[in-house]
Design a binder for these strands. Structure first.
Lengths: 242, 242
DNA sequence: ACACCAAGCAGCAAT
DNA sequence: ATTGCTGTTTGGTGT
């Protein structure tokens, strides 16, 4: 274990990406507490001092420390002990390694950034630019207004009545209707007007949410999120082209 | 690349955990669309066919496929091409690898499951068992009741008045108050009673949420989530003992 | 720093 | 399978 400890410490200090496949146990305390008994896992230490412990299944790490953690490697009783600490939030994770299957590290270079589309913001933009998606008389006024007390996706008017549009890129649930209700009520209060229209714009809506929508006199409009990448900032290619 | 393709395919078929450190690009389409240019990354393929692409920083994978995806490995123009597909939701991810820094795989065995404490459910249980945390006259009735129209953390009574308690393990925000409001209103409607008490139980609460709470006649009670593990199911040890 | 909200949220439980 | 909701949510943005 001694040389392993040295190699590990050196790789971390050297800002390499470390892959440690091992049998280990993990103890965590901080925002919660947890214990994980002995088993085979991947311990991934990134150059930014993010530490991830992955079980052989699932998308998420079973334990982790956010970037910037302090990492110490010790050796005791033939075990490798990886101690991670962070302040704000104060967190502590200890990985005790009793068997190493493989340890390797690489210096990685990656300057690229993910380009993606299909978010709720993209949807809001699409509605702003194509107001008829909401209704014949809908005239958009403001896009993605983040105010002190909420975030209105699209604000517009139908005739002389203000209309709040809440977008959801997936099936709208109770939460979406509640959000809409909050924004509508705030507008009514702040503007001192009785009537404000509320619209949920989403590809679909759950039954309960639809009922709640009706109870409050709001309406639902089917809108699909736009799925194309703006790769060249000029030429947009539809998803299906790929 | 040819032998690499064989090794990779074999490891995947063999349900091993595959670690591929490489220079690659990634294209994804499904719930959204994304493109990621050339760079050095870790491609992690788990036995359950979860696929994760990790950049050298950050906690989350930059691209991924959920467990159970179909994975094909091809070779073209000296590049390794990993094609992942899933139905429901229909998703597609292609990792094009032009340079392999390392490729290894291991058969992992991990039967352990994470034991943790400090969740909202733990909080609700604590309140149920220590009702005075909410108030002198609070008598708990039901714990974590999932009704058709919402999920009530703790339901109780103060005198002859029903009381709904909404727990948050962290600082309570507007969402918590709205949730509470929905449950209270539903109860009032279904039971046909005028008065139902509402309580937000959390370590702290935001200013806006506190105001909203007052507007609706609800109250806030300071409660910290319980941070101890029930390791033996009999003997509880406090976090600080470790 | 705080507050609020979206996420290709993921994962879980109950319907 | 759908619905609703928590999470050591993470991550981003505006105040």
């Amino acid at each position: 274990m001694k040389d392993l400890r040295g190699k590990l410490s050196r790789s971390i200090r050297n800002k390499e990406m470390v892959l440690l496949v091992c049998n280990c146990r993990v103890d965590y305390s901080g925002r919660a507490v947890s214990a994980l008994g002995w088993g085979d896992r991947l311990v991934l230490i990134k150059p930014d001092h993010t530490v991830l412990v992955h079980k052989p299944d699932g998308r998420n790490p079973v334990n982790w420390m956010a970037e910037g953690s302090n990492i110490e490697v010790e050796e005791s009783d033939g075990s490798l002990i990886i101690i991670c600490d962070s302040v704000n939030p104060r967190e502590h994770m200890v990985v005790t390694v009793r068997k190493v299957y493989s340890l390797e590290s690489n210096k990685l270079k990656d300057g690229e950034v993910l380009v993606s589309a299909g978010s709720e913001a993209d949807m809001a933009r699409m509605i702003y630019e194509n107001p008829s998606l909401i209704g014949e008389s809908f005239k958009p006024v403001r896009l993605e207004e983040q105010t002190k007390h909420g975030f209105i996706d699209v604000l517009g008017a139908e005739g002389s009545v203000l209309t709040v549009v809440e977008c959801k890129r997936y099936k709208a649930g109770l939460g979406a209707v509640q959000q809409l209700r909050r924004y509508v009520e705030r507008l009514q209060k702040s503007k001192g007007v009785m009537k404000v229209n509320g619209v949920v714009a989403a590809p679909s809506i759950t039954k309960n949410a639809m009922n709640m929508l009706g109870d409050w006199g709001y309406r639902f409009v089917v809108v699909e999120p736009p799925m194309y990448l703006d790769l060249d900032k000029s030429e947009q290619r539809r998803l299906e082209d790929y």
